[in-house]
Design a protein around this nucleic acid. Structure first.
Length: 207
DNA sequence: TTCAAGATTTCCT
DNA sequence: GGAAATCTTGAAA
């Protein structure tokens, strides 16, 4: 077991609640012998079979999205635009395909490793992980890691940094990014969460 | 078997 | 601000 890791019960709760509770927790990757880690500063919730923005809309259960149907705390990693990996964590009970997309981190450990992987020798560290594709590149997360149990995997897991979610006034809320195709009900739904005013957000929250 | 489109990033103007 | 890069998936034929 991993000391201080977020456990099954953390992820088994309501997805929006987990999305908020993940803000400020530490994502740790130990891949290729290099430890890299960052604090989660931005998340998005994807709500199962009804959500028209989710890969599981209409109850899809194809090989790609199988991880979303698995136990809470399972990694769902997919490739988009033919070149970028995106990391999600499944929530609620097995059989309920909801998940949270990790959209941005504040780099904490292994910054030199992240620079090397991202091809950014100079510049502010926030550019290493301020986007869902960027953070996967920085932490070396690929489809090889799809299906991992993030409550217990030595390569990839989350460590508890706080026992309570941030106060509501410190959490910015807005529509999800890049889901304009999802229709009038789901595209504008307030399912994106971020630490208000944090410099590592992938995009500003408009209010 | 075919084909359109995408939960993004980067580079150019 | 706009477009290209690049390839798997999912649905239709």
């Amino acid at each position: 077991m991993i000391a201080n890791a977020l456990g099954r019960a953390f992820y088994r709760r309501d997805t929006v609640r987990v999305a908020r509770a993940l803000l400020g927790q530490l994502l740790v990757s130990t891949i290729g012998g290099q430890r890299t880690a960052g604090l989660i500063v931005e998340t998005e919730a994807y709500l199962g079979v009804n959500d028209q923005a989710a890969h599981t809309k209409g109850g899809r259960r194809t090989p790609r999205v199988e991880s979303m149907w698995q136990d809470p705390g399972t990694a769902y990693v997919f490739l988009t635009y033919g070149m970028h990996h995106l990391l999600n964590i499944s929530t609620r009970a097995a059989g309920i395909p909801e998940a949270i997309l990790i959209r941005a981190l504040q780099p904490v450990d292994g910054i030199d490793t992240m620079r090397s992987r991202r091809g950014l020798a100079t510049g502010p560290p926030r550019h290493l992980t301020n986007g869902p594709g960027k953070l996967c590149q920085g932490l070396a997360i690929t489809r090889d890691h799809d299906g991992l149990d993030l409550t217990a995997d030595p390569q990839l897991h989350l460590l508890q940094q706080r026992t309570r979610a941030l106060p509501a006034r410190r959490i910015a809320v807005g529509p999800r990014i890049g889901v304009d195709y999802a229709g009038a009900e789901w595209a504008p739904a307030p399912l994106r969460f971020g630490i208000a005013g944090h410099p590592c957000l992938s995009k500003p929250f408009v209010r």
